[in-house]
């Protein structure tokens, strides 16, 4: 500051005074600004999920009682999860569809675990606007493709829970999960879905 001032020449004294004052005022106002911004961080971050909600990120589901052709609804992160034990016909139907015909091309094998192609585990949340599709319960409308059918806006999913007709943009989401044993599935394991 001092060296700058002496380089200025004529109006040195006044110049230094003005600049020092400006500097202090700018510093004071900046500190106030930093303070306000720092305070908004906790005010905003408090709206994130609290620790007890994050701790519920994993659930273990016993699938031993799901017969071939049946499905159950369970809950993970307060959202419905569909677990379906596919019949060989359903697997065949899913594999018979050419990928080119799909809006969101994925194979059934890519949506299940190796050696467990009959276990289709997806979120029960329509990718259009978040309704719960029909098709899990006995006798529910499974739509024209034999998978799931969303009654809100008519999205139809096939036996691999892939979107076929209707407004939904993508297939039903497959969450992160792992088989703890042949009869026990842990949903949410291995990080974020």
């Amino acid at each position: 500051m001092a060296t700058q001032a002496s380089a200025e020449g004529t109006d040195r004294a006044a110049g230094t005074e003005v600049r020092r004052r400006d500097f202090l005022n700018v510093a004071a106002v900046s500190f106030a600004g930093i303070g306000v911004v720092a305070v908004t961080i906790p005010l905003i971050s408090q709206m994130n999920p609290p620790a007890d909600v994050l701790a519920l990120a994993e659930v273990e589901v016993d699938i031993s009682k799901i017969q071939t052709g049946q499905a159950i609804k369970t809950v993970w992160r307060k959202q419905p999860v569909f677990i379906r034990n596919l019949t060989p016909q359903e697997i065949q139907a899913a594999n018979a569809v050419p990928l080119g015909e799909l809006r969101d091309p994925e194979t059934l094998a890519g949506r299940t675990k190796p050696g467990k192609a009959n276990w289709l585990i997806t979120l029960g949340v329509c990718t259009h606007l978040g309704c719960v599709p029909l098709g899990v319960g006995e006798g529910e409308n499974r739509g024209p493709f034999g998978g799931y059918f969303c009654p809100c806006h008519g999205s139809a999913y096939d036996t691999a829970a892939r979107i076929r007709t209707g407004p939904a943009p993508t297939n039903l989401v497959v969450p992160e999960y792992e088989f703890v044993s042949d009869t026990l599935v842990r949903i949410g394991a291995g990080g974020t879905a």
């Binding site: 906790p42 005010l43 971050s45 408090q46 994130n48 609290p50 620790a51 007890d52 909600v53």
Partner: peptide, 13 residues
């Protein structure tokens, strides 16, 4: 107590 323990920055607020 949930605010104090589990909510982000809840104890401070």
């Amino acid at each position: 107590e949930h605010i104090m323990r589990d909510v982000n920055a809840g104890w401070a607020l």
